[in-house]
Amino acid sequence: MGVYREGKYTLKFTNLPVLAGTYTVAGPIEGQGPLGRYFDLVYEDSLLGENTWEKAEVRMLHEAVDGVLKGRNLRASDIDYLIGGDLLNQITASSFAARDLDIPFLGLYSACATFSEALIVSAMMVASGASNRVVAGVSSHHDTAERQFRFPTEFANQRPMTATWTVTGSGACLIEKEEEANKNLPRLSSATLGRVVDAGIKDAYDMGSAMAPAAADTIKRHLEDTRQVPEAYDLIITGDLSRVGKPLVEDLLSQEGIEVMRVLNDCGIIIYDPKQDVHAGGSGAACSALVTGGYLYKELLNGNWNRILLVATGALLSPTTIQQGESIPGIAHAIAIER
């Protein structure tokens, strides 16, 4: 009946939901990065001519959704549900974008893992037959995140080497029921929902370490549930573990007898050039959305890759929990994309 459970944590989709289109909107630093040419729209400044960064983020998400609709000559009324989230308090970037879109809206939050969470919920909606077309969209913005989670943007603060740079941008994906017209496009085949894992990291400037145990846990469970080896995928790509968290995932899985070194990469590492002053790499809900919607999707279409496991990762902290000295729980949701 469309969706069934395999193993303990994994969802398998039959009549596979099709990833029928993507649209990515990127900020200036992301545009200058090594994947800049894969993004559909790149802004030269992070304010987009608006008077607040929050409004700029709303507009990026709105434009990403518009873009993915236009790409397939669809209107908002052709879409059954809009599913997504962001990092602002009460996920206002998404709900404000949805205010102008006239599509029923389901708001989600798993910090930077919101992108894969949105893809999974969308895939379930479509695979179950409950809907024909769903748009999943997320956003993040460096400056809205800095002023909310850390210091004012003009504060003279030196970020440590483990710090990551919140990606400015937005990505939207169109998920459709399989039809004659779209049957050659990439599809979503299975998903593993992550557990919240907390390894006791308290440093808000080291989210890669905080999220690595959750990513390792989800990857391990996905492979166990589906009885696959890592090499069954051309690429297992985590969301924003950065240069700090990725080797930790390799270490953690290696202890369990799973060697992922050859197929593992991280969106936060490849979205920026090490020469860009971003320290350990990129983070934010838009990090995995830009890399997946821009780079990975186009490489899947080109046939350079056939099977990818996206494992977006989220650090479930808030300014309050950090100030109260709580450790940072992590989460990771995996979704397999294949053609």
Binding site: T162, G200, D217, A280
Partner: peptide, 29 residues
């Protein structure tokens, strides 16, 4: 391990210490 025990926390912290990029102390100072 969901919320790690003190022992697991310590084991992970050791692992993390090995992978942490070194603080560029000399140039910072």
């Amino acid at each position: 391990m969901l919320k790690a025990s003190k022992k697991e926390e310590k084991r992970f912290a050791n692992m993390q210490e090995k992978r942490k990029p070194p603080v560029p102390l000399g140039s910072n100072l």
